[in-house]
Structure formats: structure tokens, C-alpha cells
């Protein structure tokens, strides 16, 4: 408790009636949570249906895009000779490797400084 609180005001606050528990309120919250979940599931289902439709109608644009993205991710960042340094760096010497390291760094920083 704050030492600076006015004792008369504190007494007045303490005298205020406590809000009684209400099962109706609990039921409302649970129902609202259920509605939100259904809404979220409906959106997911709509997105999946849309993606499937795109694949069927436009000759697999998503599969094609994923293939292109996969190739791009494998692109080496640095050209290396066949020596021991190349052997060590090879696992992370790609766009995907660098992206993974950056995301890991961001994750560590967020955990340390924000939470």
C-alpha cells in the first residue's frame, strides 16, 4: 500500500461494496470465446478453400511460387573455395541460413529485453 494515501479516502474506498460473482457473466465470456474461435476457424477454412481453388483454376501458381522461393532460399550468400572454411560455413551459407540466424537473433533480443 502507498504510504502517501489519505487515510480518510482509503477508508471510503475500503467501504465500497465488492462486485459479486455472477455465473451469467462467466457464461457470457465463455460464449464470446466460443464465437471468436468459430469465427477464426471459419476464416482459416475460407483461406484454405481459396488457396485450393487458386491451385485448381490457375495451373498450380502456389506450387510454382513455392518452388521458386525454395530455389532462392538455397542461393549461397558468399562464394567460397573448397577449403575448411567453406566446409564450416556451408550449413549457413544460404539466404535461408542467414534468414534463420537473423530470426534467432531477434527472438533472443525480444526475450531478453522485452519480456
Amino acid at each position: 500500500m502507498s504510504d502517501h494515501n489519505d487515510p480518510d479516502l482509503q477508508a471510503l474506498f475500503d467501504q465500497q461494496p465488492v462486485v459479486q460473482n455472477s455465473e451469467a457473466f462467466v457464461a457470457d465470456v465463455i460464449a464470446a470465446a466460443g464465437r471468436r474461435r468459430m469465427h477464426w476457424l471459419a476464416w482459416r477454412a475460407a483461406i484454405v478453400a481459396g488457396l485450393i481453388l487458386l491451385e485448381l483454376v490457375f495451373e498450380s501458381p502456389i506450387s510454382h511460387s513455392l518452388g521458386v522461393l525454395g530455389s532462392a532460399m538455397k542461393t549461397p550468400v558468399i562464394s567460397l573455395q573448397d577449403d575448411w572454411a567453406a566446409f564450416l560455413i556451408e550449413p549457413i551459407n544460404s539466404v535461408a541460413g542467414v534468414l534463420g540466424l537473423v530470426l534467432l537473433g531477434v527472438h533472443v533480443l525480444l526475450r531478453r529485453y522485452i519480456r
Partner: peptide, 22 residues
């Protein structure tokens, strides 16, 4: 666990509703 969520709402509703009423 939805039952656990419901129990937390039940336990803490009076406090949170009282705070917002103030």
C-alpha cells in the same frame, strides 16, 4: 484447457469488474 479458463474467469471476475466500475 477451456475448463481452466472458465475457472480463472470465475475467480477473477469480481476483481476485474470492480476495477472497471471504479
Amino acid at each position: 484447457d477451456r475448463h481452466a479458463f472458465e475457472e480463472l474467469v470465475r475467480r477473477r471476475q469480481g476483481w476485474i469488474r470492480g476495477l472497471f466500475r471504479r
